[in-house]
Simulated assay, not measured.
Amino acid sequence: MKKTIEVKNLSVHYYGDIALENVSFSMNEGNIIGVVGPNGAGKSTLMKALLGLVKFDGEVSIFGQRVNELRKNIAYVPQRSTIDWDFPILVEDAVLMGRYMHIPWYKKTAKKDREKAEKALEQVGMESFRKKQIGELSGGQQQRVFIARALAQDADLFFLDEPFVGIDVNSEEIIVNLLKQLREQGKTIFVIHHDLSKVETYFDELLMLNQRLIGAGPVKEIFNPQILKQAYGGNAAVISSDKEMVVVGP
Rank of each mutant, 00 (worst) to 15 (best):
E92P: 00
D93S: 12
D93H: 14
D93L: 05
D93N: 15
A94P: 00
A94N: 03
A94K: 02
A94M: 15
V95F: 03
V95M: 07
L96D: 01
M97R: 08
M97E: 11
M97F: 11
M97T: 11
M97I: 09
G98K: 03
G98P: 02
R99W: 04
R99T: 07
R99K: 10
R99N: 09
R99I: 10
Y100E: 08
Y100G: 00
Y100C: 09
Y100L: 14
Y100W: 08
Y100K: 13
M101E: 03
M101A: 13
M101Y: 00
H102K: 15
H102A: 15
I103V: 15
I103W: 01
I103H: 04
W105C: 01
W105S: 08
W105F: 13
Y106S: 10
Y106C: 02
Y106P: 00
K107I: 07
K108Y: 04
K108G: 05
K108M: 08
K108F: 04
T109W: 00
A110Y: 02
A110T: 15
K111T: 12
K111P: 01
K111G: 03
K111L: 10
K111F: 03
K111E: 15
K112T: 12
D113E: 11
D113R: 00
D113W: 00
D113L: 02
D113Y: 01
R114C: 11
E115A: 15
E115T: 13
E115S: 13
K116Y: 05
K116F: 05
A117S: 14
A117M: 03
E118S: 14
E118W: 10
E118R: 15
K119N: 05
K119Q: 06
A120E: 02
A120F: 02
A120T: 04
A120M: 07
L121D: 00
E122W: 07
E122C: 12
E122H: 13
E122Q: 15
Q123V: 09
Q123S: 14
V124N: 01
V124K: 00
G125K: 07
G125Y: 06
G125W: 04
E127P: 00
E127K: 15
E127M: 12
S128N: 12
S128E: 11
S128D: 09
F129W: 08
R130T: 06
R130N: 04
R130M: 12
R130S: 13
